[in-house]
């Protein structure tokens, strides 16, 4: 049984259809990357999965269990099992790094504070931020903030980690420090669904690549298939345009 299964999913902002007939399944341990031009619905798919935008049709199953986005308890449970890292980091500006990382496990998941803090410090150490525990987000660089955001998501021990263009808002010289962190996570076998424009990185870490266009999935396959032998003309057009840079 796939860990995450999406069937015929559709969503819209008002009258504008942004996702239609999306089918996708992710096995445990897979790293799936969504590619496609901006406005193709990649980020929207992640927002729908996290319950930030209600789907109009279709269904989402996690571990075979159907998610009801209209029900509060079902929403709560899917947000327990999946965590998202945003393009703009979205760290809480009024909390220091450690608080940002520990608040949800301690206050929402009711885990013992000492345990959570130990785990959080270990994770922050791994992303290279053990010296910044008491810093506030506005005292950190974009790359550092994004690594804190990843640490915040990891401390929740999610079954699936969603990464929404995590390097898009960063200065070029800061991109790699964040990508390195994600590479390590991939190597550890954490299940991830990634939206990214960094094609080299996508090709390297993904077990599977999914091409989206106009709110629909065009094709999916291994990185080699998508980047070297795309079946769909839309994919080859996109890939050749991107790789030419």
């Amino acid at each position: 049984m796939p860990l995450l299964e999406v069937k015929n999913l559709a969503a819209s902002y008002g009258a504008l259809t942004v996702l239609q007939n999306v089918n996708l399944s992710i096995e445990k341990g897979e790293v799936v990357s969504l590619i496609g031009s901006s406005g193709s619905g990649k980020s929207t798919l992640l927002r729908v999965l996290m319950g930030l935008l209600k789907p109009n049709a279709g269904e989402v199953r996690i571990d075979g269990e159907k998610v009801d986005y209209g029900s509060r308890s079902s929403l709560k449970s899917i947000r327990d099992r999946m965590a998202i890292v945003f393009q703009q980091y979205n760290l809480f500006q009024n909390m220091d790094v450690l608080k940002n990382v520990t608040i949800a496990p301690v206050e929402i998941k009711k885990r013992p504070r000492a345990d959570v803090e130990r785990e959080a410090k270990a994770i922050l150490d791994r992303v290279g931020l053990s010296a910044k525990l008491k810093s506030y987000p506005d005292q950190l660089s974009g790359g550092q903030q994004q690594r804190v955001a990843i640490a915040r998501a990891l401390t929740l021990r999610p079954e699936i980690l969603l990464l929404d263009e995590v390097t898009a808002a960063l200065d070029p010289e800061l991109v790699n420090e964040v990508l390195d962190t994600v590479r390590e996570l991939a190597a550890e076998g954490i299940t991830m669904l990634i939206v990214s424009h960094e094609m080299g990185f996508v090709r390297e870490v993904s077990t599977r690549v999914v091409m989206m266009d106009k709110g629909q999935i065009v094709e999916s396959g291994t990185p080699k298939e998508i980047f070297e032998n795309p079946r769909e003309p839309r994919t080859s057009a996109f890939v050749s345009k991107i790789l030419r840079h």
Binding site: G51, L52, R79, A83, F86, N90, F92, I103, A104, I108
Partner: peptide, 21 residues
């Protein structure tokens, strides 16, 4: 608005979001 969305995905309830964020 993004701060509120982040709180939402962390399962903060409405009042916790208001008071903590």
């Amino acid at each position: 608005r993004l701060q509120i969305e982040a709180a939402e995905t962390l399962n903060f309830g409405f009042w916790r979001t208001q008071f903590r964020v």
